[in-house]
Structures are given as C-alpha cells and as structure tokens.
Simulated assay, not measured.
Amino acid sequence: MTDTTRRPATRDKERTRQAVIAATERLVQERGMRFSIADVAAAAEISKGGVLYHFTNRDALLVAVVEHAIARFHSEVMRHTDITENRAGKLLRGYVRALCGGSDEAVQVFAPFTHWAGIEEIPEIAELLRADAAWWRTALLDDGLPAARTHSVRFAAEGVAAAITTEIAYITADDLALTRAALLELAEPDPA
C-alpha cells in the first residue's frame, strides 16, 4: 500500500470508537443495562481488546454513550428550531417539534433514558444528566415565555416522546397531531 492510499489512523480510530458507541446504544435499547464489554465487542464486530483500547471500562463506555446521546439530542432540537422566529418561545417550539413527531432521532435519543434503570448510579453519568437538565431548564426559561407555561409545554412534549416509543398504540397519529399543534400554540407568546 502506498502512502497515498492509506487512511489516516486517527480516522480509523474515530470510526471504530463511533461503532462501539453505536453498538452500545443498540444494546442498551435492546437489553437495558444487561450487557458486557464482550457483548459490545461482538455487536461492534471488533475484539474485546478493541473496545477496551477506546474505553477503559464499561462505565467509561456508558459515559461516552450518554455524552453522545446528549449531543445528538441537542443537535436535533436545534435542527427543529427556526432561527427566523424572532419571538419568545423559539427554542421551546423547536423542542416540541423535535419530540412530538418531528424527529425520530430525538425521540429515540430522549426516550431510552427513561428505560435505562440504574445508569444514573454511575457518578459521572448522574453529573452529566444533572448538567444537561440544568442547561435545558436555563435555556428554555431564557427563551422568554412564562416559567409555568414553559415547564408545562416541555414536560408535556417529553411525555409525548415517551408515549411515541411504547410498543402499544398509546398515542394515535391523530392524537399526536392534535397534541403537537396545541403545544406549539402554547409555546407562542401571548398576543400583544
């Protein structure tokens, strides 16, 4: 192989690291916290040593998975936030759009946290989740709408996201459309 045909080692390392994170995310969605490093290696199609090269232990891997999920969720909400809406509630409306049927990615990233029983027992993850919750609380309250309305719309959107991911038909397409429209309306400033 010549120098011009070799891939940079860091690119391969990063690709492998991302494959390990993706495999772990799939395992968590399928099994909850019941998986091992060997399971991750098999799912990522690399050796157990390959996983441990990137992540020193299972907790470090789970921290990386949560960091990745938080970043993906932020990105999806921002993608659904219309920066041309120059009025209060812009970020909250993006939050509603992302969680209420506008982004399968946001729903899948957000909803599994409710099913990851025990993950918050890892101190680094508990701190990440607290920091992320505080960031959203501050950002959404700084968005210009009254606190009670902001909290109500936010938590309702999160409930809708959880309902979307259930295996049973907890929320119909019509229910979702009506709820999304109502939440978006509530996320608008009062008319002057």
Rank of each mutant, 00 (worst) to 15 (best):
R137H: 10
V20L: 13
P8T: 08
D142F: 13
R130L: 15
L52D: 02
T10E: 15
L128Q: 08
A98M: 10
D132W: 08
E121M: 08
D143Q: 05
A98V: 10
P123M: 05
F55P: 00
S75Q: 12
E124M: 08
G102L: 13
L99M: 07
A134L: 09
E14L: 15
T81E: 06
G49Y: 13
D142P: 00
D59I: 01
R87C: 07
A23D: 02
W135I: 02
T56C: 03
R26P: 00
E121S: 06
F110Y: 14
R154Q: 14
P146Q: 10
I37L: 13
E25H: 07
D104H: 09
R137C: 01
C100D: 04
R7Q: 14
T24V: 02
A23T: 04
I37W: 04
L140R: 04
R93T: 06
A131M: 09
R34V: 13
D12M: 15
R154K: 15
T150F: 10
R154W: 11
S103T: 05
A148E: 13
K48W: 02
H151K: 12
F155H: 13
T150P: 01
D132C: 05
I125E: 01
E14N: 11
H68F: 07
T84H: 11
L141T: 08
E120N: 04
R26Y: 05
D82W: 11
E105T: 12
A117E: 09
